[in-house]
Each structure stands twice: as C-alpha cells, then as structure tokens.
Write a protein that binds this DNA or RNA. Structure first.
Lengths: 341, 341
DNA sequence: GTGAAAGCGCTAACAG
DNA sequence: CTGTTAGCGCTTTCAC
C-alpha cells in the first residue's frame, strides 16, 4: 500500500549522491562497485522499496524475466504439483511464471504462442497434450517440452517412461490373474495418448496377452469422455476384468461408468489410473494409479528453462522419469477357476 | 518461425514513407489518420507481421495489457470454466491473462502480489478462497474480487448467492425427508467457507432443523480433507442422512469416505456438492450439485476488470449469481417410517 | 570505481 | 491530417 508508484533510479541516485549508472550497477553487477557506496545505495533501495521498472529494463535488456507454462486445460489435475514445482524454482531465480491454457483448441493455442512472442516472454514450457503447434513462436524463445519429444529439434525434453510403466503395470495385472484388459486413453489427436497406446500394446505382447481393439477406446482427457469410453467397453460382447485409464481424471469417469452399469469395483472389474493426480487417493474407491515425481520434475523443468534462457546454445537434454504403481483399492486378484477345483 | 525478431516502428515508417508517429497512430488511433495512408501503412504492418515492442510501449503508456488471475490452487476445478470465460473476454480486448496460484500459502500470496506490482500488471482478479492479503499490491492496480465482498473498499465484486442457494438446497432436502444434515466445508481460514456455514445455519433454522455442530466439519478444499472430515462425521454417534460438500472437489472425498465406511450412496446416505465442477457428472455416482453460470461470470468479471483499468474512478459494482440444483444420482428420498404404518 | 551520455522502441504533445 | 520533438526509466559503453 506504500505510495511509491513512481520512484525511479534517478531519485535513488540523487538520494545516494551518485550517478544513476552506479545504482544500476549495484543492482545488476554489485561486484563492480565499491563496498561502501554499494551498501549506502543498497540501503536507499531497500528503504524506498525501489523496484526497477520492468518496461525500461526490458527495453534495454530484451528480457522479461517471465516464463510461460502452456497446459492443455485447467481441468486436468496432473499439472497441479508440476506447476507448483516449476513456480517455486522459477521464483528462486526471480522469474515469474504465467500460465496459459490452450483449452484444447488449436486456434487458441496459436494465439497464445503469438501472444507469448509479442509479450517477449523469455521461455516457454509446453505441457500440452496436443500435437505441437508452435509456429507462431519466435524462434528465439527458449523452449522446454514436457511429455513430448523435442530432442530432434534441439529442445530440452522431459518425458515419462511410459514403456516401462506399462511393462510394470501389465506385469502386475497379469500377476493378479488379469488377462482381459481395457484401455481408455486420449486418442489420435494426442501425442501422449498415442505413446501410451503403443506402450500398452508392446507390454501386452510381451506378456502374451491378446490385444482386443474394441477394448482400447479414445477419450480426450475429460472425466466425461472417460465415462463414455468406458460405457463402450462395457457394452462390448466380452467384458474386461480390468480397465486402465490413461489419467486419473479419465479414471473418475471410468469408475463412475462401471458403477453406473451395475458392476462393482474392484470385485467385478478392476481399474488403474495414471499420474496420481490430487484427489485420486480419495475416490470411490481410492484409485490404484501410476505415479511419478511430478513436483521434482517441475523443479528440474524450471531449472532447464532458466539454463536455456541464459545459454541458448547449450546442447539439449532429455530426462526420463520412471513411474511406479501406487496400490490402493481398485485392483483385485482374479480367482483362477481352473485352479479352484 | 518468421525471422522478424527486431522489426521496429521506424522500419515500417520508412517503408510506408511516413513518420513513425503516423504508424503509431494507425495502430492506436486509426480514426485520426487519412484512410489512404492508413491502409498503406496497415498493409506494411501486416506484411511484416509487425508487433509493437511491449516494453517500449509500456514504458510510455504505463500499461502492460496483462491481467492476472489469482487462484488459491491448481487443484480446485471450480475455476476451470471461470478462467476460460475470463480469458476469452480478455483476448477480445487484446489483454493477456496470466494465472498465479497462491498454493494456499500466505507468504507466497504476498510474493505474488508484490510481483504483480513489479510487473506493472494492469488488473488483478482475486478468486482466492483465503483471507484477503493484498497489501503488497500497488493501490493503483485495478482489482476485482470473486466470491469475496470488496464493495466497502470500492472494489468490484462478484459473488454467489449462497444464502438463497442453501435455502433452495435445504428446502429440497427437507422435501425429500432429510432432517439430519452433515456439512463438510472450508473452515475458519476461508472467507467463502465461513459464508457458506452462515448460510447453511440460516437455512437450517428457517426450516426448523436442528443444527448439530458435530456434523459441520472443516476441510480445506481438497478431496483428501473432504474424506477426513466425512470420516469424522460418520464416526459420530448419530449418522446424517445427507452430507453437503462445500465444493465438488470436497465431494470426491465425501463420496469416497462414505463408501469406505461401508455405506451406500444414495441409499443410506445422500450427498450434494457445490459448483458443478468438471467431472462431477461422471463421479461414482454422478454427483447432485449446485451450479451457477461460471463461464458467464468469467466473461463479466473480465468485462469489469477492463472497465476498471480504463476508468479507475467508476463507482464499484456488485454482481450476485444465483445457484441452482442439478439433480443427479446422489440424493434419495427418505421413507418416513411414521407414515409407513 | 564512478560519471556522462547515448539509446532501447514507442507514444503524445505540439506545431504546422 | 501529418511531421517534429521530447521523453518514458533503465543499462551500457566509453571516458576519466
């Protein structure tokens, strides 16, 4: 509430009896200035709560100290902890994080990319589940991809090891006696959906399970779509003994639809989610899911974007995160009737 | 990907054979310039895909054309459609929206407010469920409150008519034969939680129901807290016939906990949520909830902040939104045994 | 180690 | 209706 609306570097300079350039130095290159003057100037800066005007500064430095996080929507909880990790790390280095949601709309995503360029944002973190669409981005913007491979374009990428995740998961389910496995996941429009389908199939083959294409149905990441997809699976001639949801958000609808159709989870049909999103531990029933260190990933992603902003020419890195099963209450072993006799 | 990184107003001016100020005019005050020159200049602007440098512009105008939305966290879905409405309306007027999450952390919220001032953001929309905490905000920033009353401070406010909402809801439940009503809601730290508790009690009194304080339990807006609060209610000596959740996110945990304790929804215990958040239609079972026009509210909130940015001295407005019951599958009538004979 | 001066790209008086 | 001019507040050579 302090009425310091328009205190400039000039005023600080006058107060301290130095030239504006000296004030600028104590802010940006403190090591260049004499300890005594530095401290005096700093005191005035603190007292007046002086903050450099970002416009003037940006005009000069061409940097905004802002990084953008682009997510597909605000209704997918998987980004919550990730975003928190990013924001915390960014703040440490005095960057601001802004979030844009593309609302799963290509046109909007384009507009956002354009805005990001116009705004002279220093870096962009793409956590979009959509196909890439960043032509409108000035190429000088630092970029980092989450859950999408940009390594061939020299872009730092952070991805989940879904192959191993599905290997673990299918192995786990097989161990529980499951063989008829349904899969509800983002469809063709979605890079990460496609990747998961491939990983799913690979694991199914490895464990010699038959892949039933009727049991793999697309759902564009909302709970409602998860519901609809599940209904389709349940209306097929043969019922799965377990349904995997590509995300916990999807899992909400899977759980709901199974119940709606009169089946019990996990007694009749088991369910597994993905991402360990907030709330999945409290679902009806608590959802067994695949988790990873989303918060930690956030920190590292932020680290990466800062590095790239400052050293654009560094060789790009790729970091892979493993996923682990969190057992809760939606998977039950199947009693093998053959052995029951 | 166009390599237009540094095209300035000067270059456009030269191309068009006019003075930079004329170019500036066609951008900012087109009506002031001759149709012919305007069109010629505009053509060059389009061709070169020229965008004014926001730093230079901001330095001059003291406006960033950015408005911030501050939410308590990224894990509450109630803001999803609201945010979308805001973003859409804002874009129409060429504003960018940035989102900050306070992560329900006071210190962080303070930092965010400070950043917002430093960044010279034009307007801030507070959709925070926390107690107000915006001392760090330069007072010249335009502000709008959602779900919190700022009218006494001359701040535009958009609030939900929870009084009428609870009146409707309790009446509805009473009509279904419910009298023992539990309530899970954000506690003392939360302005909107307090407001809901007051409205709840008022309605309970009106319909001559006894308020049992053991059945009103605080939960800080996460599903998990909703779960814990519900467990408390269910372990009380007397069971409620219905539990109201202050938000659908809380409702997830309410549903989960009731099931966990071995009760059936809605046969044994009914549940009602609040806000009609994305996914609540697909829960297990689909959650009966109180909805309002969140998307429409978003549009109007954006409208308001734009108005206030441009005319800071306008008298402040207060807009109240009504809530309505969406009947789904979590409320069941009670068979009154007295009349059953 | 510090001051002087130029200029980042734009907008807004002020003339004409 | 359009050009000229003077900054907005800061950083950064370049001298000293």
């Amino acid at each position: 509430m302090t009425k310091k609306d328009t205190i400039t570097i000039l005023e600080i300079a006058k107060m301290s009896g130095v030239n504006p350039s000296t004030v600028s130095r104590v802010i940006n290159h403190p090591e260049m200035v004499n300890v005594k003057t530095r401290e005096r100037v700093q005191r005035f800066i603190n007292e007046c709560n002086y903050q450099p005007n970002p416009f003037a500064r940006g005009l000069q430095t061409k940097k905004s100290k802002i990084v953008a996080l682009v997510v597909p929507n605000f209704t997918t909880l998987s980004f919550a902890k990730l975003a928190r990790g990013i924001q915390e790390r960014l703040m440490e280095s005095d960057y601001s994080m802004v979030i844009f949601s593309s609302h799963e709309d290509e046109v909007l995503e384009k507009k956002i990319c354009k805005k990001i360029s116009e705004l002279h944002i220093d870096g962009v973190i793409f956590a979009s589940s959509m196909m890439p669409n960043y032509d409108e981005l000035a190429y000088s913007v630092a970029k980092v991809f989450i859950d999408r491979d940009g390594s061939k374009d020299g872009i730092d990428t952070f991805i989940l090891d879904v192959e191993t995740a599905f290997d673990k998961l299918i192995k786990y389910l097989v161990g529980k006696g499951h063989t008829k496995i349904g899969f509800v996941v983002g469809g063709e429009e979605s890079y990460s959906g496609l990747k998961k389908i491939a990983a799913f199939k690979k694991a199914m083959n490895k464990y010699e399970l038959t892949i039933d294409d009727n049991k793999i149905v697309g759902a564009f990441w909302s709970s409602k779509e998860g519901w609809n997809a599940t209904i389709k699976i349940l209306e097929d001639s043969e019922l799965p003994t377990v349904i995997i949801a590509g995300s916990d958000t999807l899992g909400v609808g899977v759980l709901g639809a199974i119940n709606f159709k009169g089946f019990k989870v996990p007694e009749e049909i088991s369910v597994v989610g993905f991402n360990n999103e907030p709330g999945s531990e409290s679902m009806n029933p608590p959802l067994t899911t695949m988790e990873y260190d989303d918060y930690g990933m956030g920190k590292e992603v932020a680290e990466a974007i800062i590095r790239r902003i400052n050293k654009p020419e560094t060789e790009s890195i790729t970091k892979i995160y493993t996923m682990n099963i969190i057992e809760r209450s939606t998977v039950k072993g199947i009693i093998d009737k053959e052995n029951d006799i």
